[in-house]
Amino acid sequence: MSLEGHELRWMKHQTPIVDDVTLTVQPHETLGLLGPNGSGKSSLLQLLASLRTPDTGRVRLGDMPLRHQSRRRIARRLALVEQHATTEADLCVEEVVQLGRTPHRGPLRPWQPEDERIIRQVLERVGLAGMRRRRWHTLSGGERQRVQLARAMAQQPEVLLLDEPTNHLDIQHQLDLLALIRRLALTSVIALHDLNLAAMFCDRLIVMHRGQLVAEGTPATVLTPALIHEVYGVTAVVERSPHHGRLQVHYLPDLPPA
């Protein structure tokens, strides 16, 4: 399932937050969405998820235009993992993941064995099978993100959008989570801050700067010292790592003498 955004534009208080962005995500591709804070990454994801309606432009999911599409139909094909999910409700892991079945269930349709099978499967996949009854509020940040990912997977989507899923996670959980998302082999868009993680786990990258798309392509074509300087205002050297073969960005700030 491909995902396309065409000439997307979204204003807030007369300021363009997303400004004329066109992108295509190929089926089963992992696309990294880069850009500094406030560059419009989250807003672009919300437009792609049809949570906001673009002022101009359109989004297509496969051959389905998203405008005027029922929320439920969209939610069966596209799932979103928010940056920082919070709740007041005293839910357990299982109950959060069950929410993922919402778009597949009518208002009064009882829980089916099929739903149960899916829940068990996704919990196993994210490595939380033994924690079904744990309370959400007792989970660590990494566990919460995995629960949210399991919830998104329970929607059985073809497209997965993730808004900085590795924020606030320690390095081990960042690597685990991204590797897990990669293994799902869905069409996915991941907003990321860490350029090295993006180079490691994404097929292609796009870079946003002040609402506009300023670069697009493979990590090798996008992650150049010139672009990093232009967008982040940071001097950097980029080289291929002799250890894992992916690009590695070395930042060169004014360091104190070592």
């Binding site: 439920r72 928010e82 839910l91 919402t102 208002p107």
Partner: peptide, 24 residues
């Protein structure tokens, strides 16, 4: 009662509910 499931979907907020297919 017809909206019971829908109300469950609001646990993580309105955007999360919308992303779960709720016409908020």
């Amino acid at each position: 009662l017809c909206f019971a499931r829908t109300l469950d979907a609001f646990a993580f907020g309105e955007d999360a509910a919308a992303a779960l297919g709720v016409a908020v």
